[in-house]
Design a protein around this nucleic acid. Structure first.
Length: 517
RNA sequence: GGUCCGUUCGUCUAGGGGUUAGGACAUCAGAUUUUCAUUCUGGUAACACGGGUUCGAUUCCCGUACGGACUACCA
Protein backbone atom coordinates (compact mmCIF):
# COMPACT_ATOMS: atom_id res chain seq x y z
CA UNK A 1 0.00 0.00 0.00
CA UNK A 2 1.38 3.36 -0.99
CA UNK A 3 0.93 6.19 1.41
CA UNK A 4 -0.99 9.12 0.05
CA UNK A 5 1.19 12.24 -0.01
CA UNK A 6 0.12 14.65 2.63
CA UNK A 7 -0.82 17.49 0.35
CA UNK A 8 -3.28 15.30 -1.49
CA UNK A 9 -4.82 13.93 1.62
CA UNK A 10 -8.32 14.90 2.50
CA UNK A 11 -8.49 17.03 5.60
CA UNK A 12 -9.41 14.91 8.57
CA UNK A 13 -9.23 16.53 11.96
CA UNK A 14 -10.20 15.27 15.33
CA UNK A 15 -11.31 16.71 18.59
CA UNK A 16 -10.17 14.26 21.23
CA UNK A 17 -11.27 15.18 24.72
CA UNK A 18 -10.92 13.10 27.79
CA UNK A 19 -14.18 12.38 29.62
CA UNK A 20 -12.91 13.53 32.97
CA UNK A 21 -15.55 16.16 33.55
CA UNK A 22 -17.08 19.09 31.77
CA UNK A 23 -15.52 20.35 28.60
CA UNK A 24 -13.87 23.64 29.29
CA UNK A 25 -13.91 26.75 27.25
CA UNK A 26 -10.39 26.24 25.95
CA UNK A 27 -11.36 22.79 24.79
CA UNK A 28 -14.33 24.26 23.03
CA UNK A 29 -12.06 26.66 21.20
CA UNK A 30 -9.82 23.79 20.17
CA UNK A 31 -12.87 21.96 18.86
CA UNK A 32 -13.96 25.11 17.04
CA UNK A 33 -10.65 25.58 15.24
CA UNK A 34 -10.65 21.95 14.19
CA UNK A 35 -14.18 22.31 12.96
CA UNK A 36 -13.48 25.48 11.01
CA UNK A 37 -10.60 23.85 9.20
CA UNK A 38 -12.67 20.78 8.43
CA UNK A 39 -15.57 22.78 7.02
CA UNK A 40 -13.38 25.13 5.10
CA UNK A 41 -11.62 22.33 3.30
CA UNK A 42 -14.60 20.10 2.87
CA UNK A 43 -12.94 17.69 5.24
CA UNK A 44 -14.11 15.59 8.13
CA UNK A 45 -14.56 16.51 11.78
CA UNK A 46 -14.03 13.56 14.05
CA UNK A 47 -14.86 13.15 17.72
CA UNK A 48 -12.68 10.67 19.55
CA UNK A 49 -12.98 9.99 23.23
CA UNK A 50 -9.67 9.52 25.02
CA UNK A 51 -10.76 7.50 27.99
CA UNK A 52 -7.62 5.54 28.69
CA UNK A 53 -7.42 6.68 32.28
CA UNK A 54 -9.89 4.52 34.10
CA UNK A 55 -9.23 6.27 37.36
CA UNK A 56 -10.33 9.61 36.07
CA UNK A 57 -13.37 8.52 34.17
CA UNK A 58 -16.39 10.60 35.08
CA UNK A 59 -19.85 9.35 34.22
CA UNK A 60 -21.85 11.77 32.13
CA UNK A 61 -18.82 13.61 30.82
CA UNK A 62 -19.02 12.13 27.36
CA UNK A 63 -22.69 13.01 26.96
CA UNK A 64 -21.90 16.47 28.24
CA UNK A 65 -19.20 16.96 25.64
CA UNK A 66 -21.52 15.89 22.84
CA UNK A 67 -24.26 18.21 24.04
CA UNK A 68 -21.88 21.12 24.45
CA UNK A 69 -20.56 20.73 20.93
CA UNK A 70 -24.04 20.52 19.55
CA UNK A 71 -25.15 23.59 21.42
CA UNK A 72 -22.16 25.49 20.09
CA UNK A 73 -23.01 24.49 16.55
CA UNK A 74 -19.98 22.28 16.04
CA UNK A 75 -21.18 19.29 14.12
CA UNK A 76 -19.39 15.98 14.31
CA UNK A 77 -19.12 14.10 11.04
CA UNK A 78 -17.53 10.96 12.31
CA UNK A 79 -16.64 9.33 15.58
CA UNK A 80 -18.44 8.80 18.83
CA UNK A 81 -22.04 9.57 18.00
CA UNK A 82 -22.33 9.32 14.25
CA UNK A 83 -19.92 6.41 13.99
CA UNK A 84 -17.76 5.86 10.94
CA UNK A 85 -15.41 3.53 9.11
CA UNK A 86 -12.44 3.92 11.46
CA UNK A 87 -14.10 2.94 14.71
CA UNK A 88 -14.33 2.26 17.47
CA UNK A 89 -13.79 5.86 18.48
CA UNK A 90 -13.55 5.32 22.19
CA UNK A 91 -10.00 4.46 23.09
CA UNK A 92 -11.05 2.13 25.85
CA UNK A 93 -12.57 -0.02 23.13
CA UNK A 94 -9.35 -0.20 21.17
CA UNK A 95 -7.08 -1.93 23.63
CA UNK A 96 -6.07 -4.76 21.37
CA UNK A 97 -5.03 -2.31 18.69
CA UNK A 98 -2.65 -0.57 21.05
CA UNK A 99 -1.37 -3.84 22.38
CA UNK A 100 -0.52 -5.02 18.89
CA UNK A 101 1.26 -1.81 18.08
CA UNK A 102 3.19 -1.80 21.32
CA UNK A 103 4.20 -5.38 20.63
CA UNK A 104 5.37 -4.33 17.20
CA UNK A 105 7.62 -1.70 18.72
CA UNK A 106 9.03 -4.23 21.15
CA UNK A 107 9.72 -6.67 18.36
CA UNK A 108 11.55 -3.99 16.44
CA UNK A 109 13.57 -2.88 19.44
CA UNK A 110 11.82 0.47 19.76
CA UNK A 111 10.24 -0.37 23.08
CA UNK A 112 10.92 -2.52 26.11
CA UNK A 113 9.30 -3.98 29.20
CA UNK A 114 9.94 -2.26 32.50
CA UNK A 115 9.23 -3.73 35.91
CA UNK A 116 10.25 -0.89 38.17
CA UNK A 117 7.97 -0.26 41.09
CA UNK A 118 6.81 3.18 42.06
CA UNK A 119 9.37 3.12 44.83
CA UNK A 120 12.10 2.26 42.35
CA UNK A 121 11.12 5.24 40.24
CA UNK A 122 10.99 7.55 43.20
CA UNK A 123 14.40 6.34 44.35
CA UNK A 124 15.78 7.00 40.90
CA UNK A 125 14.50 10.56 40.96
CA UNK A 126 15.92 11.16 44.41
CA UNK A 127 19.27 9.74 43.41
CA UNK A 128 19.48 11.92 40.31
CA UNK A 129 18.38 14.97 42.17
CA UNK A 130 20.98 14.40 44.85
CA UNK A 131 23.60 13.98 42.17
CA UNK A 132 22.62 17.35 40.76
CA UNK A 133 21.44 16.02 37.43
CA UNK A 134 19.64 18.46 35.14
CA UNK A 135 16.63 16.30 34.94
CA UNK A 136 15.36 13.20 36.62
CA UNK A 137 13.98 11.23 33.80
CA UNK A 138 13.82 7.61 32.85
CA UNK A 139 15.61 7.69 29.55
CA UNK A 140 18.78 7.52 27.58
CA UNK A 141 20.97 8.16 30.62
CA UNK A 142 19.19 6.01 33.17
CA UNK A 143 17.40 3.15 31.49
CA UNK A 144 20.35 0.82 31.94
CA UNK A 145 20.25 1.25 35.71
CA UNK A 146 16.65 0.19 35.97
CA UNK A 147 14.74 -3.04 36.09
CA UNK A 148 13.67 -3.75 32.54
CA UNK A 149 14.12 -6.01 29.57
CA UNK A 150 17.21 -4.06 28.60
CA UNK A 151 18.98 -4.98 31.83
CA UNK A 152 17.42 -8.30 32.77
CA UNK A 153 18.44 -11.56 31.13
CA UNK A 154 15.87 -12.68 28.52
CA UNK A 155 14.93 -15.72 30.56
CA UNK A 156 14.18 -13.57 33.59
CA UNK A 157 12.05 -11.25 31.48
CA UNK A 158 10.16 -14.19 30.06
CA UNK A 159 9.52 -15.67 33.45
CA UNK A 160 8.34 -12.39 34.93
CA UNK A 161 5.98 -11.92 32.03
CA UNK A 162 4.72 -15.47 32.33
CA UNK A 163 4.13 -15.16 36.05
CA UNK A 164 2.04 -12.07 35.62
CA UNK A 165 4.43 -9.63 37.25
CA UNK A 166 3.12 -6.14 36.59
CA UNK A 167 4.97 -4.27 33.90
CA UNK A 168 4.76 -1.31 31.61
CA UNK A 169 6.04 -0.93 28.10
CA UNK A 170 8.34 2.00 27.60
CA UNK A 171 9.45 3.70 24.43
CA UNK A 172 13.16 3.37 23.77
CA UNK A 173 14.07 6.85 22.72
CA UNK A 174 16.98 6.92 20.26
CA UNK A 175 20.15 8.67 21.42
CA UNK A 176 21.63 11.88 20.10
CA UNK A 177 19.02 12.72 17.56
CA UNK A 178 17.65 16.11 16.73
CA UNK A 179 13.92 15.77 16.76
CA UNK A 180 12.19 18.32 14.59
CA UNK A 181 8.57 19.20 15.11
CA UNK A 182 7.09 21.21 12.27
CA UNK A 183 4.42 23.35 13.77
CA UNK A 184 2.04 25.31 11.59
CA UNK A 185 1.87 28.09 14.14
CA UNK A 186 5.37 28.16 15.57
CA UNK A 187 7.53 26.91 12.77
CA UNK A 188 10.31 24.49 13.55
CA UNK A 189 10.77 23.30 17.10
CA UNK A 190 13.93 21.29 17.61
CA UNK A 191 14.70 19.17 20.63
CA UNK A 192 17.50 16.74 21.34
CA UNK A 193 16.23 13.21 21.78
CA UNK A 194 18.42 13.00 24.87
CA UNK A 195 15.99 15.39 26.49
CA UNK A 196 13.09 13.14 25.73
CA UNK A 197 12.32 10.49 28.28
CA UNK A 198 11.35 6.88 27.75
CA UNK A 199 7.67 7.48 28.08
CA UNK A 200 5.40 4.73 29.22
CA UNK A 201 3.44 3.52 26.22
CA UNK A 202 1.38 0.80 27.85
CA UNK A 203 0.38 1.08 31.47
CA UNK A 204 0.34 -1.87 33.83
CA UNK A 205 -3.44 -2.02 33.59
CA UNK A 206 -3.15 -2.83 29.92
CA UNK A 207 -4.29 0.59 28.76
CA UNK A 208 -2.14 2.77 26.53
CA UNK A 209 -0.97 6.21 27.58
CA UNK A 210 -1.98 9.26 25.63
CA UNK A 211 1.26 9.20 23.68
CA UNK A 212 0.79 5.79 22.15
CA UNK A 213 -2.95 5.98 21.72
CA UNK A 214 -2.92 9.37 20.10
CA UNK A 215 -0.25 8.44 17.56
CA UNK A 216 -1.73 5.07 16.70
CA UNK A 217 -5.24 6.45 16.38
CA UNK A 218 -4.28 9.51 14.40
CA UNK A 219 -2.45 7.28 11.98
CA UNK A 220 -5.14 4.66 11.70
CA UNK A 221 -7.87 7.27 11.42
CA UNK A 222 -5.86 9.06 8.74
CA UNK A 223 -5.83 12.34 10.59
CA UNK A 224 -4.31 15.10 8.49
CA UNK A 225 -3.95 17.86 11.09
CA UNK A 226 -3.47 17.67 14.82
CA UNK A 227 -4.75 20.91 16.27
CA UNK A 228 -4.42 20.92 20.02
CA UNK A 229 -3.41 23.08 22.95
CA UNK A 230 0.10 24.31 23.53
CA UNK A 231 0.41 22.15 26.62
CA UNK A 232 1.11 19.33 24.18
CA UNK A 233 4.05 21.00 22.55
CA UNK A 234 6.64 19.57 24.96
CA UNK A 235 5.50 16.05 24.20
CA UNK A 236 5.24 16.55 20.46
CA UNK A 237 8.82 15.30 19.95
CA UNK A 238 7.82 11.99 21.53
CA UNK A 239 5.01 11.74 19.04
CA UNK A 240 7.30 12.50 16.13
CA UNK A 241 9.70 9.86 17.35
CA UNK A 242 6.85 7.38 17.56
CA UNK A 243 5.77 8.11 14.01
CA UNK A 244 9.35 7.47 12.99
CA UNK A 245 9.57 4.23 14.96
CA UNK A 246 6.39 2.99 13.34
CA UNK A 247 7.61 4.05 9.92
CA UNK A 248 4.72 6.44 9.44
CA UNK A 249 6.60 9.64 8.79
CA UNK A 250 5.27 9.96 5.25
CA UNK A 251 1.74 10.33 6.46
CA UNK A 252 2.41 12.02 9.76
CA UNK A 253 -0.22 14.67 10.43
CA UNK A 254 0.67 18.33 10.48
CA UNK A 255 0.78 19.85 13.94
CA UNK A 256 -0.66 23.11 15.15
CA UNK A 257 -0.27 23.95 18.83
CA UNK A 258 -2.72 26.57 19.92
CA UNK A 259 -1.79 29.37 22.34
CA UNK A 260 -3.12 28.81 25.81
CA UNK A 261 -6.12 30.52 27.33
CA UNK A 262 -4.85 32.26 30.43
CA UNK A 263 -6.57 33.42 33.57
CA UNK A 264 -7.57 37.11 33.47
CA UNK A 265 -4.52 38.06 35.50
CA UNK A 266 -2.29 36.27 33.04
CA UNK A 267 -0.95 33.90 35.66
CA UNK A 268 -1.52 30.34 34.65
CA UNK A 269 -3.78 28.69 32.18
CA UNK A 270 -7.47 28.70 32.63
CA UNK A 271 -8.44 25.43 34.22
CA UNK A 272 -11.51 23.54 35.19
CA UNK A 273 -10.82 24.40 38.77
CA UNK A 274 -11.46 28.02 37.97
CA UNK A 275 -15.12 27.28 37.38
CA UNK A 276 -17.18 29.87 39.20
CA UNK A 277 -14.11 31.26 40.98
CA UNK A 278 -13.41 33.96 38.45
CA UNK A 279 -16.84 35.50 38.15
CA UNK A 280 -17.63 34.05 34.77
CA UNK A 281 -18.44 30.61 33.44
CA UNK A 282 -15.72 28.37 32.21
CA UNK A 283 -17.93 25.58 30.96
CA UNK A 284 -20.25 25.81 27.97
CA UNK A 285 -23.13 24.17 29.80
CA UNK A 286 -24.02 23.75 33.44
CA UNK A 287 -22.06 20.91 34.92
CA UNK A 288 -23.02 18.97 37.96
CA UNK A 289 -20.09 17.17 39.45
CA UNK A 290 -21.35 13.65 40.07
CA UNK A 291 -19.02 13.23 43.00
CA UNK A 292 -19.64 16.38 44.95
CA UNK A 293 -23.01 17.28 43.53
CA UNK A 294 -21.79 20.82 42.98
CA UNK A 295 -23.12 22.65 39.97
CA UNK A 296 -20.87 24.90 37.92
CA UNK A 297 -22.59 27.48 35.75
CA UNK A 298 -22.38 27.16 32.00
CA UNK A 299 -22.38 29.82 29.33
CA UNK A 300 -25.70 28.61 28.05
CA UNK A 301 -27.38 28.91 31.40
CA UNK A 302 -25.71 32.24 32.09
CA UNK A 303 -27.52 33.59 29.06
CA UNK A 304 -24.84 33.58 26.42
CA UNK A 305 -25.95 32.85 22.89
CA UNK A 306 -23.93 30.18 21.13
CA UNK A 307 -23.18 32.46 18.20
CA UNK A 308 -21.78 35.06 20.59
CA UNK A 309 -19.60 32.56 22.40
CA UNK A 310 -18.32 31.15 19.14
CA UNK A 311 -17.51 34.56 17.73
CA UNK A 312 -15.74 35.50 20.95
CA UNK A 313 -13.82 32.25 21.16
CA UNK A 314 -12.76 32.39 17.54
CA UNK A 315 -11.09 35.72 18.24
CA UNK A 316 -9.14 34.43 21.20
CA UNK A 317 -5.89 33.75 19.46
CA UNK A 318 -7.03 34.22 15.91
CA UNK A 319 -8.10 37.17 13.81
CA UNK A 320 -8.92 37.65 10.17
CA UNK A 321 -6.49 40.52 9.58
CA UNK A 322 -9.36 42.79 8.65
CA UNK A 323 -11.35 45.09 10.85
CA UNK A 324 -14.43 42.96 10.81
CA UNK A 325 -15.32 41.73 14.28
CA UNK A 326 -18.69 40.14 13.83
CA UNK A 327 -18.54 36.72 12.25
CA UNK A 328 -21.20 34.09 11.87
CA UNK A 329 -20.06 30.48 11.86
CA UNK A 330 -20.34 30.53 8.09
CA UNK A 331 -18.12 33.57 7.84
CA UNK A 332 -15.61 32.06 10.23
CA UNK A 333 -15.42 28.97 8.08
CA UNK A 334 -14.56 31.12 5.10
CA UNK A 335 -12.10 33.43 6.84
CA UNK A 336 -10.30 31.01 9.13
CA UNK A 337 -6.63 30.33 8.54
CA UNK A 338 -4.28 28.41 10.80
CA UNK A 339 -1.45 30.70 9.73
CA UNK A 340 -3.24 33.61 11.32
CA UNK A 341 -3.39 32.05 14.74
CA UNK A 342 -1.22 33.94 17.20
CA UNK A 343 1.59 32.50 19.25
CA UNK A 344 1.18 34.20 22.60
CA UNK A 345 -1.08 33.04 25.38
CA UNK A 346 -4.38 34.85 25.59
CA UNK A 347 -5.90 36.30 28.69
CA UNK A 348 -9.52 35.63 29.12
CA UNK A 349 -11.59 38.80 29.37
CA UNK A 350 -15.28 38.28 29.83
CA UNK A 351 -16.18 41.87 28.92
CA UNK A 352 -15.72 41.24 25.27
CA UNK A 353 -17.87 38.15 25.46
CA UNK A 354 -20.61 40.24 27.02
CA UNK A 355 -20.31 42.77 24.26
CA UNK A 356 -20.68 40.05 21.64
CA UNK A 357 -23.66 38.70 23.48
CA UNK A 358 -25.32 42.09 23.61
CA UNK A 359 -24.72 42.47 19.93
CA UNK A 360 -26.19 39.14 18.96
CA UNK A 361 -29.07 39.43 21.39
CA UNK A 362 -30.13 42.72 19.86
CA UNK A 363 -30.20 41.26 16.43
CA UNK A 364 -32.90 38.83 17.51
CA UNK A 365 -36.48 39.46 16.44
CA UNK A 366 -38.87 40.94 18.91
CA UNK A 367 -40.75 37.70 18.86
CA UNK A 368 -37.67 35.70 19.86
CA UNK A 369 -36.94 38.12 22.67
CA UNK A 370 -40.50 37.88 23.90
CA UNK A 371 -40.25 34.12 24.15
CA UNK A 372 -37.41 34.44 26.62
CA UNK A 373 -39.39 36.96 28.62
CA UNK A 374 -42.48 34.78 28.52
CA UNK A 375 -40.53 31.80 29.79
CA UNK A 376 -39.08 33.77 32.70
CA UNK A 377 -42.49 35.19 33.55
CA UNK A 378 -43.96 31.74 33.50
CA UNK A 379 -41.27 30.58 35.88
CA UNK A 380 -42.22 33.41 38.16
CA UNK A 381 -45.82 32.30 37.99
CA UNK A 382 -47.08 35.06 35.75
CA UNK A 383 -48.87 34.81 32.46
CA UNK A 384 -49.10 37.70 30.03
CA UNK A 385 -50.15 37.80 26.42
CA UNK A 386 -47.55 37.40 23.74
CA UNK A 387 -48.54 40.80 22.44
CA UNK A 388 -47.69 42.50 25.71
CA UNK A 389 -44.48 40.49 26.01
CA UNK A 390 -43.47 41.70 22.58
CA UNK A 391 -44.17 45.30 23.43
CA UNK A 392 -42.10 45.02 26.57
CA UNK A 393 -39.28 43.25 24.74
CA UNK A 394 -39.24 45.86 22.05
CA UNK A 395 -38.94 48.76 24.43
CA UNK A 396 -36.18 46.94 26.33
CA UNK A 397 -34.14 45.57 23.45
CA UNK A 398 -31.43 48.23 23.58
CA UNK A 399 -30.92 47.78 27.27
CA UNK A 400 -30.15 44.09 27.57
CA UNK A 401 -27.02 41.99 27.56
CA UNK A 402 -28.62 38.71 28.54
CA UNK A 403 -32.09 37.34 27.87
CA UNK A 404 -32.74 37.35 31.60
CA UNK A 405 -32.39 41.14 31.59
CA UNK A 406 -35.76 41.26 29.88
CA UNK A 407 -37.40 39.92 32.98
CA UNK A 408 -35.29 41.91 35.37
CA UNK A 409 -35.84 45.20 33.61
CA UNK A 410 -39.41 44.53 32.51
CA UNK A 411 -40.73 43.19 35.75
CA UNK A 412 -42.35 46.47 36.71
CA UNK A 413 -44.74 46.12 33.77
CA UNK A 414 -46.23 43.09 35.42
CA UNK A 415 -45.87 43.82 39.09
CA UNK A 416 -46.95 47.05 40.73
CA UNK A 417 -44.19 48.82 42.61
CA UNK A 418 -43.80 47.64 46.16
CA UNK A 419 -41.67 50.62 47.08
CA UNK A 420 -40.64 53.88 45.50
CA UNK A 421 -37.16 55.10 44.80
CA UNK A 422 -36.34 57.24 47.82
CA UNK A 423 -33.52 59.14 46.18
CA UNK A 424 -36.01 60.76 43.88
CA UNK A 425 -38.86 61.13 46.34
CA UNK A 426 -36.82 62.70 49.10
CA UNK A 427 -35.87 65.48 46.74
CA UNK A 428 -38.84 65.84 44.45
CA UNK A 429 -41.96 64.64 46.17
CA UNK A 430 -43.71 67.90 46.99
CA UNK A 431 -47.00 69.76 46.66
CA UNK A 432 -46.44 70.72 43.05
CA UNK A 433 -45.57 67.19 42.09
CA UNK A 434 -48.63 65.76 43.74
CA UNK A 435 -50.83 68.39 42.12
CA UNK A 436 -49.49 67.61 38.65
CA UNK A 437 -49.69 63.87 39.12
CA UNK A 438 -53.20 64.09 40.41
CA UNK A 439 -54.37 66.30 37.57
CA UNK A 440 -52.55 64.10 35.09
CA UNK A 441 -54.29 61.01 36.41
CA UNK A 442 -57.59 62.83 36.11
CA UNK A 443 -56.96 63.76 32.50
CA UNK A 444 -55.73 60.36 31.39
CA UNK A 445 -59.23 58.95 30.75
CA UNK A 446 -59.77 61.44 27.95
CA UNK A 447 -56.47 60.82 26.18
CA UNK A 448 -57.27 59.48 22.78
CA UNK A 449 -55.75 57.36 21.39
CA UNK A 450 -54.01 56.12 24.51
CA UNK A 451 -50.53 56.04 23.05
CA UNK A 452 -47.17 57.53 23.92
CA UNK A 453 -47.43 60.78 21.95
CA UNK A 454 -50.82 61.97 23.16
CA UNK A 455 -49.95 60.84 26.68
CA UNK A 456 -46.85 62.94 26.55
CA UNK A 457 -48.74 65.96 25.21
CA UNK A 458 -51.29 65.61 27.93
CA UNK A 459 -48.67 65.38 30.60
CA UNK A 460 -46.87 68.47 29.37
CA UNK A 461 -50.12 70.41 29.09
CA UNK A 462 -51.16 69.38 32.58
CA UNK A 463 -47.91 70.52 34.08
CA UNK A 464 -47.98 73.76 32.14
CA UNK A 465 -51.50 74.50 33.31
CA UNK A 466 -50.30 74.33 36.87
CA UNK A 467 -47.27 76.44 36.15
CA UNK A 468 -44.80 73.58 36.60
CA UNK A 469 -42.08 72.59 34.20
CA UNK A 470 -42.67 69.05 32.98
CA UNK A 471 -39.05 68.14 33.60
CA UNK A 472 -39.42 68.88 37.27
CA UNK A 473 -42.06 66.27 37.87
CA UNK A 474 -41.18 63.72 35.26
CA UNK A 475 -38.89 61.80 37.53
CA UNK A 476 -41.59 61.66 40.14
CA UNK A 477 -44.08 60.42 37.60
CA UNK A 478 -41.68 57.69 36.60
CA UNK A 479 -41.19 56.56 40.13
CA UNK A 480 -44.90 56.63 40.85
CA UNK A 481 -45.60 54.40 37.89
CA UNK A 482 -42.57 52.09 37.93
CA UNK A 483 -41.08 52.50 41.38
CA UNK A 484 -37.72 53.04 39.75
CA UNK A 485 -35.60 56.06 39.03
CA UNK A 486 -34.60 54.89 35.60
CA UNK A 487 -35.94 52.73 32.87
CA UNK A 488 -37.22 52.70 29.34
CA UNK A 489 -39.20 55.50 27.74
CA UNK A 490 -41.83 56.47 30.27
CA UNK A 491 -44.55 57.48 27.87
CA UNK A 492 -44.19 54.28 25.98
CA UNK A 493 -44.17 52.38 29.24
CA UNK A 494 -47.44 53.95 30.27
CA UNK A 495 -48.88 53.03 26.92
CA UNK A 496 -47.92 49.40 27.39
CA UNK A 497 -49.16 49.43 30.95
CA UNK A 498 -52.57 50.54 29.79
CA UNK A 499 -54.76 53.41 30.82
CA UNK A 500 -56.44 51.93 33.87
CA UNK A 501 -53.28 50.44 35.32
CA UNK A 502 -51.38 53.67 34.88
CA UNK A 503 -54.07 55.73 36.60
CA UNK A 504 -54.30 53.23 39.38
CA UNK A 505 -50.57 53.25 39.98
CA UNK A 506 -50.39 57.04 40.10
CA UNK A 507 -53.32 57.26 42.49
CA UNK A 508 -51.95 54.53 44.71
CA UNK A 509 -48.68 56.34 44.92
CA UNK A 510 -50.29 59.64 45.86
CA UNK A 511 -52.44 57.92 48.44
CA UNK A 512 -49.61 56.06 50.08
CA UNK A 513 -46.89 58.67 50.01
CA UNK A 514 -47.24 61.49 52.52
CA UNK A 515 -45.85 64.92 51.77
CA UNK A 516 -42.71 65.76 53.69
CA UNK A 517 -42.84 68.10 56.67
C1' G B 1 16.29 23.12 38.48
C1' G B 2 15.90 21.34 33.19
C1' U B 3 13.50 21.52 28.26
C1' C B 4 10.31 24.17 25.21
C1' C B 5 7.15 28.36 23.94
C1' G B 6 6.16 33.39 24.20
C1' U B 7 6.39 39.26 24.96
C1' U B 8 2.60 45.88 20.37
C1' C B 9 -2.50 50.39 24.38
C1' G B 10 -5.66 47.77 30.88
C1' U B 11 -7.56 43.39 27.46
C1' C B 12 -7.99 40.96 22.37
C1' U B 13 -5.08 42.30 18.39
C1' A B 14 -3.41 44.68 13.06
C1' G B 15 1.09 46.07 11.14
C1' G B 16 6.00 45.67 9.69
C1' G B 17 13.19 48.29 8.31
C1' G B 18 11.42 54.77 7.17
C1' U B 19 3.68 54.76 9.66
C1' U B 20 0.60 60.70 12.97
C1' A B 21 1.96 52.49 15.12
C1' G B 22 -4.50 51.04 12.97
C1' G B 23 -9.07 48.55 14.97
C1' A B 24 -12.22 46.32 18.81
C1' C B 25 -13.56 45.75 24.14
C1' A B 26 -12.95 48.45 28.55
C1' U B 27 -12.29 53.48 30.32
C1' C B 28 -12.88 58.98 30.21
C1' A B 29 -15.27 63.44 28.05
C1' G B 30 -18.95 65.85 24.99
C1' A B 31 -23.61 65.55 22.09
C1' U B 32 -28.52 63.32 21.77
C1' U B 33 -32.25 61.45 25.31
C1' U B 34 -37.71 63.45 30.27
C1' U B 35 -34.08 59.38 33.63
C1' C B 36 -30.90 55.35 32.88
C1' A B 37 -29.32 52.62 28.88
C1' U B 38 -28.69 52.98 23.65
C1' U B 39 -26.65 55.85 19.69
C1' C B 40 -23.08 59.48 17.83
C1' U B 41 -18.46 62.28 18.30
C1' G B 42 -13.93 62.85 20.52
C1' G B 43 -9.92 61.65 24.07
C1' U B 44 -6.33 58.96 27.31
C1' A B 45 -3.47 54.69 26.33
C1' A B 46 1.29 50.18 23.58
C1' C B 47 6.09 48.21 20.32
C1' A B 48 9.74 44.70 27.93
C1' C B 49 15.18 45.96 28.26
C1' G B 50 20.34 45.85 26.34
C1' G B 51 23.51 44.97 22.46
C1' G B 52 24.31 44.31 17.41
C1' U B 53 23.07 44.42 11.62
C1' U B 54 21.59 48.89 8.93
C1' C B 55 21.75 55.41 6.45
C1' G B 56 17.52 54.00 9.52
C1' A B 57 14.93 49.47 13.81
C1' U B 58 9.05 48.46 17.12
C1' U B 59 9.97 45.24 12.81
C1' C B 60 15.94 41.14 11.46
C1' C B 61 19.91 38.63 14.86
C1' C B 62 21.92 37.69 19.81
C1' G B 63 21.52 38.23 24.85
C1' U B 64 18.82 39.74 29.44
C1' A B 65 14.41 40.25 32.05
C1' C B 66 9.62 38.78 32.69
C1' G B 67 5.56 35.43 31.78
C1' G B 68 3.76 30.63 30.52
C1' A B 69 3.67 25.33 29.41
C1' C B 70 5.81 20.73 30.30
C1' U B 71 8.78 17.86 33.48
C1' A B 72 3.01 10.91 35.99
C1' C B 73 1.81 3.91 34.71
C1' C B 74 -3.19 12.15 33.55
C1' A B 75 -4.74 13.63 29.33
Amino acid sequence: MHPIPLHMKKTRVRFAPSPTGALHIGGLRTALYNYLLARQTGGTMILRIEDTDQGRFVPGAEAYIAEALQWAGIQIDEGVGPGGPFGPYRQSERRSIYQEHAQQLINQGHAYYAFDSEDDLEAMRQRLKAAGADDQQYGVGTRLQMVNSLTLPPAEVASRLASGTPYVIRFKVPENKSVVVQDLIRGEVVVSSNQVDDKVLMKSDGMPTYHLANVVDDHLMQISHVIRGEEWLPSAPIHVLLYEAFGWTETMPRFAHLPLLLKPDGHGKLSKRDADQLGFPIFPLNWKDPRTGEVATGYREAGYLPEALINFLAFLGWNPGTEQEIFSMQELVKAFAIERIGKAGTRFDIHKAQWFNQHYLRSKSTQELSHWLLADLKNAGTIVSEEIAQQISDVLRDRITFPSDLFKLGRFFIERPLEYDQQVFSKKWNKDAVAVLSAFADSLPSVNPYTAEPIKATFEQTAANLGVKPGQVLQVLRVSVTGQASGPDLMKSMEILGRDETIERIRTCIRSTPLPG
